[in-house]
Amino acid sequence: MSWMHTLFALILLPAIIVGLFRILRGPTAADRMVTAQLFGTCGVAILLLLSTGMGNPVLLDIALVFALLAALTTMTFIRRTWHGSGKKKHGYSIP
């Protein structure tokens, strides 16, 4: 039980909550997906800090599961939801 790690986790929690604004008014779908990835990284950090703060080493395994499955959602998004419908291969002209 150390209150300092819990305080660090409490500092990291607004980093997630402020990121919600980007989900609410992100212009493209990729912005929203990127914010979900920010949630994964910040959530892993919060879980690691809470593992020391609550004195429970089981939370490291939850963080491990989050880190394992973080890429899966984004890859499904790219492969199944957001692909195609582009005319050219590399469409924009480099200025």
């Binding site: 990729a30 469409g91 924009y92």
Partner: peptide, 8 residues
């Protein structure tokens, strides 16, 4: 994927 979708 964003480059392929013509996002400038």
């Amino acid at each position: 994927s964003a480059m392929q979708k013509n996002i400038q």
